[in-house]
């Protein structure tokens, strides 16, 4: 297991290099000259050329990549021309908000989808079972077909604009609420640590709609996978044998669920990486101020340093999640090693 783990971890380095190269090439191919974007449409071409030279944009692509790689390895992700800050500082300031949002959504999605999936599988027969099964099927189709940004706008319209029971989509706190001092960067944790209950409750309120959006859209595949996987296991010979031995239904379900967990865990890992991408539009709609919103602004403003770093961060997190999944698989299934 140790050897497998070392090999798998070593593989991260070429993977990250490939991601860095692909990110660099994609950004290079993106239309929009950062020097022109920075100086504006009315700047003379001589000023644009001078800034391009200063930023190294006039050098060949391979030279730019080598410089980019060197800087990245030393933790210098460049400077965002839009915010005026070092990109690393921007990411450090914004990433906790994003991870807070997607982690809460992830936990709730699993907490809802797995029991519901099991319930749908166990009660797949009879009138109630058919209703449960069809509801879960319909929900799966609906959640798969609805774009997250549209669903977020509908939630805002219904719960904020019409019913007036949700807080405004104005960010992580109301304008009049003073946030806690930044310790971890995640307001819920910082508010708890500092005992700032006003900020905690206010922030919890602001989490409702974005979390509901991400959970609604992303819980569906987990629910379907759990249902199918448990259903498949419930029909397998070892379950029939268990039934024949007169074991109680709950114990049989537990056996089936345990064996069904492997694909569910894989999907859950994939889901976490999908949530990182899903946060981009959700954050933008709820003015969340996290990495996702930062990414959108970077694209629109040709803020290349910021864009490259956001993509690299997303890729690195995804690779780490996949690494954890591989190690988990190896731990529970020796054939993988």
């Amino acid at each position: 297991m140790g050897r497998y783990a070392s090999k798998r971890i070593a593989l991260l380095i070429p993977q990250l290099l490939c991601v860095a190269l692909i990110t660099f090439l994609l950004v290079l191919a993106t239309p929009g000259n950062p020097a022109r974007a920075q100086l504006g449409s009315q700047a003379p071409q001589s000023a644009v050329d001078a800034l391009s030279e200063k930023l190294g944009l006039d050098r060949p692509a391979y030279e730019q990549f080598v410089v980019y790689l060197k800087n990245t390895v030393t933790g210098d992700f460049g400077q965002s021309w839009v915010s005026g800050n070092a990109v690393l500082d921007d990411l450090v300031a914004r990433a906790p908000s994003t991870f807070e949002l997607i982690t809460i959504s992830f936990v709730i999605a699993l907490a809802l989808a797995i029991p519901l999936g099991v319930m749908a599988a166990v009660r797949s027969t009879g009138f109630v079972g058919r209703i449960v099964d069809r509801c879960s099927f319909g929900y799966g189709l609906l959640a798969g077909a609805i774009p997250d940004f549209w669903f977020a706008l509908i939630l805002i319209f219904v719960f904020f604009a019409v019913l007036g029971i949700a807080p405004s989509p104005i960010g992580q706190l109301d304008v009049t609420v003073e946030g806690p001092p930044s310790i971890t960067g995640a307001i819920s944790i910082d508010a708890l640590l500092t005992g700032n209950w006003a900020a905690f409750w206010n922030h919890a309120g602001h989490l409702v709609l974005p979390v509901a959006t991400l959970v609604f859209i992303n819980a569906a595949p987990i629910l379907r996978m759990t249902r199918n996987s448990v259903l498949e296991n419930l029909g397998s010979p070892y379950i029939r044998f268990a039934r024949a031995n007169g074991l109680p239904k709950s114990q049989i379900v537990r056996y089936a669920l345990r064996n069904a967990l492997l694909p569910i865990v894989t999907l859950a890992g994939v889901l976490y990486t999908i949530l990182i991408a899903g946060a981009v539009l959700t954050e933008t709609i709820f003015s969340w101020g996290g990495v996702g919103q930062y990414a959108v602004q970077s694209v629109l403003n040709a803020d290349w340093a910021a864009l490259q770093s956001v993509v690299l961060l997303g890729a690195a997190v995804s690779l780490l999640v996949y690494l954890a999944l591989d190690l988990f698989h190896a731990a529970i299934d020796p054939r993988v090693r």
Binding site: I104, I108, I165, P167, S168, N202, H206
Partner: peptide, 27 residues
């Protein structure tokens, strides 16, 4: 836990829904 978090958030929502004053701006 999920329900508590939902409820917690719901409380937060309720607590903030009236944040804006009738006059506007809330400040």
């Amino acid at each position: 836990g999920a329900a508590a978090l939902g409820g917690l958030a719901g409380c937060g929502a309720a607590g903030t829904s009236g944040g804006g004053s009738a006059g506007g701006g809330g400040g």
